[in-house]
Design a protein around this nucleic acid. Structure first.
Lengths: 345, 345
DNA sequence: TTAAACTACGAAAACGATTAAGTGAACAAA
DNA sequence: TTTGTTCACTTAATCGTTTTCGTAGTTTAA
């Protein structure tokens, strides 16, 4: 490997001079600088990041926590979309992205230990089974600049998809189509996302003067088509079934959708359904799904931008709450219905 | 940050002794070793990977090339599945995973430069727009241990999904259901995957004594629903349309599926379709797709395992071709048809 | 008793960069 | 001429490890 030392010898200068020439700062003559840079290029010099990090304590590396139940997190379109946005943004700003190791078979390293070990300049927490766990909390409380997605911690800047507005938009659209009996299969309790959406669901219902019977709200984990199928069955079996069901996400919706079509009901003729996320597939299905598209790339990019900002100018760094708006995709899975339909019971 | 020096002072030994105690090698007394390890734990010592890498030239870090047309590669279920497998495997073996930077706005670093800069012990090439580009070739030819997925280079161990067997299985199953007029919308030429599948398609057709008119083979890029929709239209408009269409992948299939249903045709009543990949959604649709499930996690894991093997025992390292079998999911999108149907023209 | 061998540790160089402080030359001001 | 100031560069310390070699002290062999 070609080092500064070699360049220094070749140019008959000291290593310090080479450093100054390449980093473009410090006192150095114009012509020497050019001569050095030229030779560096000729020799194919690449700086040694380990040496630099050792000296400067600055790794230009961001750690990303991407914990995943069942080990399949990377294949979730929402999270992988966010990760992709994050990656694009930080690469643009000349940082690299390394996964925070989530395997502790033999080692006893915590997330924070791992972050220190790798000398991450900053940390992005994208997805995580249990934010309240000791390990994650230790990480969030640490003094390493950290940004979280869809989770709020006092110490960290958070980028949040506007689930409140999203749910509100969705509800109001459904209402505008004439629906008055709206059910909601929400994702697992304990998640911030669920909490926000559920609160928005109830609040909007109140605003619209809708009565939401207790049995209209079921729980099914995100992405779990079986659970959403079960919940759908329960809803359809009610004495007064809803005219529209909102699902935790587009994938979970499919589970319910299958139950509905198996029963010979049509969408949106006999019942309307709405999803969340706006995954690619949602706009390819027939009928196109009514859903909220989340701008995953934007979420990831904002997270990256803020994180690097707080790394590079710590004094001006604020703990911010950045909210990214979703977009209502009306699709065709929520149909127009007449008032009578709502009162058929 | 607590360093070896601090531990050394606290224990009244030299730094060298601490190093030996913690690395568990070298000559050292049993009791001193324990004393040192104890203090290290108490102080919360974490090794400094930069210093270690600088000295040993071993970063315990794997670079992954994940290049992505349109910047959305991470959301492709196949690739993200492979990446996930890779991540799981190498973390198990105490390596970390860092993305090879694909942004060159201001910098002029090539992939290889970036790999050298980060001192990657090994490289995994998971997905890549153009394997033949100078940059990628430079990387593959370099002396850094490298493993490729679904691409073969003389220097590198390759992990390959068995596209040949997969296509053969698919064809034979379709044939067994009575189909004799089988069309294939293949992915973009230039990809190894396409080449293999296309060759297998023709070879199996020959074996089955099937006649494949030239117009039965169309091209549409992977994941591109519009292009597959166009190709489907062309096929349906033929004087002698096929009774079954094989798509580049499950996602592209949806494009074709929509065209078919828009024309009022039923699947598999009026026409049969088959996909590839076996994405989650494929088994949730009605009818379930006939497709080949690729074992993405296994592919990723194998890639990781072989890569680390060739890093840690370079002498025994072979350039291997590891083939991972897919699995036929029969689904219901390919229907049984009678001989007459095949000869209706 | 003496030499050889072994044990347990320390001293010091090295990895490749950064950076504060120092130095000699050139030049300007007094 | 002397003094002070810039300029352009060098010296040398430093970051936290690893690793080779050296060396006391102890044990064993002759």
């Amino acid at each position: 490997m070609v080092s500064m030392k070699m360049i220094a010898e070749r140019c008959n200068v000291s290593v310090a001079t080479v450093s100054k020439a390449l980093s473009n700062r410090g006192d150095i003559g114009e012509d020497t600088k050019n001569r050095i840079r030229q030779t560096a290029k000729e020799l194919g010099y690449v700086p040694n990041v380990a040496a630099r990090a050792l000296k400067t304590n600055h790794s230009y590396n961001i750690g990303v926590l991407f914990e995943e139940q069942a080990g399949s997190g990377l294949t979730h379109e929402y999270f992988s979309g966010v990760l992709n946005g994050l990656k694009l943004q930080i690469e643009q700003q000349h940082y690299d992205l390394t996964f925070i190791n989530t395997s502790f078979e033999n080692s006893e390293m915590t997330y924070l230990d791992h972050a220190r070990y790798r000398n991450f300049d900053g940390i992005a927490v994208i997805c995580c089974d249990d934010y309240e766990s000791a390990q994650v909390q230790e990480l969030l409380k640490s003094d390493i600049p950290t940004v979280t997605v869809d989770y709020v911690h006092q110490n960290c800047t958070a980028v949040l998809s506007n689930n409140i507005k999203g749910m509100e938009d969705l509800m109001k659209y459904i209402y505008s189509q004439g629906h008055r009996r709206i059910a909601y299969i929400c994702g697992q309790a304990g998640s911030y996302v669920t909490k926000d959406r559920l609160a928005a669901f109830y609040r909007t219902a109140e605003e619209l003067k809708l009565d939401i019977p207790e049995e209209y709200v079921k729980e099914a984990r995100y992405m779990e088509t079986r659970e959403s199928a079960e919940a759908t069955k329960a809803l359809l079996d009610l004495k007064n079934p809803p005219t529209c069901i909102i699902y935790p996400d587009d994938m979970a919706l499919i589970g319910g959708r299958n139950v509905i079509t198996e029963r010979g009901m049509t969408i949106p003729g006999d019942i309307s359904i709405a999803g969340y996320d706006g995954i690619r597939m949602s706009q390819l299905l027939h009928p196109k799904l009514t859903t909220i598209r989340q701008d995953t790339e934007r979420i990831g990019r904002e997270a990256g931008r803020r994180l690097i900002q707080s790394i590079e100018t710590p004094k001006t760094a604020l703990v911010e709450r950045v909210v990214i708006e979703g977009e209502l995709l009306t699709g065709q899975s929520v149909g127009k219905i007449t008032p009578e339909t709502n009162n058929q019971f």
